[in-house]
Amino acid sequence: MKPHRLTFAFQLTVTLLACAFLMVPAGASILAGFTVNYFRGVSSGLTLKWIGEVLALYSDTIALSIAIALGTLGVTLLIGVPAAWALARRPSRLTRLVEEVVTLPVAIPGLALALALILAYGGIREFRMSPLFILTGHVLYTLPFMLRAVMAVLAAVDVRTLEEGAASLGASPLQRFFHVVVPNARGGILAGALMVVTLSIGEFNLTWMLHTPLTKTLPVGLADSYASMRLEIASAYTLVFFVMIVPLLVALQLFGRTVQGAAR
C-alpha cells in the first residue's frame, strides 16, 4: 500500500529528524575529538593531540576493558553454550523456570545487582580488589544474552533431529554435542559472542559500583573524563570508544535477525 503524499512527507520528516537526533551528537563528538578548540569551532584547527592525551591517560582502562570483555566471553561460552543446549533440548516447565531465573539479571537494574554483589562479596578483599569482581558482574549480566542467542538458533535449526540422526549412526551424547550441536549452532554462538563483547565493553551501571581505583574500565574512565576533563579530551576518549564498539555493532547488525530474535 503506497502511503498518501502528506503521510509520506510526515513520515520522512520524522525519520530524518530521528536520524539527526541520533547521529548529529555522535558526529559532533567525533569532530570535537579532533578540534583544537571546540568552543571556537573547527576554524581553530584539527589536531591529534587529544587522542594522544587520551591514550596516555587512559590506555590502562582500554586494556582492562578488552581483557574483561574477552574473559567474560570465555566464561559465557564455557557456561552458556552447554547449558543452552541442555535447556533447549527438552523444554518443560522446569527448564522455563530455570530460564526465567537465569535471565532475571537482565530484568533487574544493574545498580541493584551491583549492590547485591558488593553486600555479599565486598568483604572478601582480594576478590573485591581484583578485576574478577567486575568480570563476575559482567558474566551475570551477559550470560542470558548468550543463552538466548544459542537457544534461539538451536530451536531454529531443529538440532534435535540432527542429534537423533547422529545417534542413529552410533555417536555418543558428547560426540553429538561437539560434532553436530556446536557446529550447527555457530551462527547463534557468534551472534551471542558479539553481543556479550559489545555489552561488556560498554557496561557502566554495574561496573561503576564494582570498580576500584585500580580496576577502572573504559566506560568508568569515560564517566571520569566527562566529569573532570575538557570537552575535547572527553570527545577524543569517546571517539576511541566508538572505534572499538562500532565494528562490533556493525557485525551485530549483520547478524541482526538472529540476535534480535534471541536478545528480546
Partner: peptide, 18 residues
C-alpha cells in the same frame, strides 16, 4: 538508526551534553 543500539548510558549522557 540502529547503530547506537549498544551505546552505554554514560556515552548517551555525553551525546545529550553535546
Amino acid at each position: 538508526l540502529t547503530l547506537p543500539l549498544a551505546f552505554p548510558g554514560v556515552v548517551v549522557g555525553f551525546m545529550v551534553i553535546l
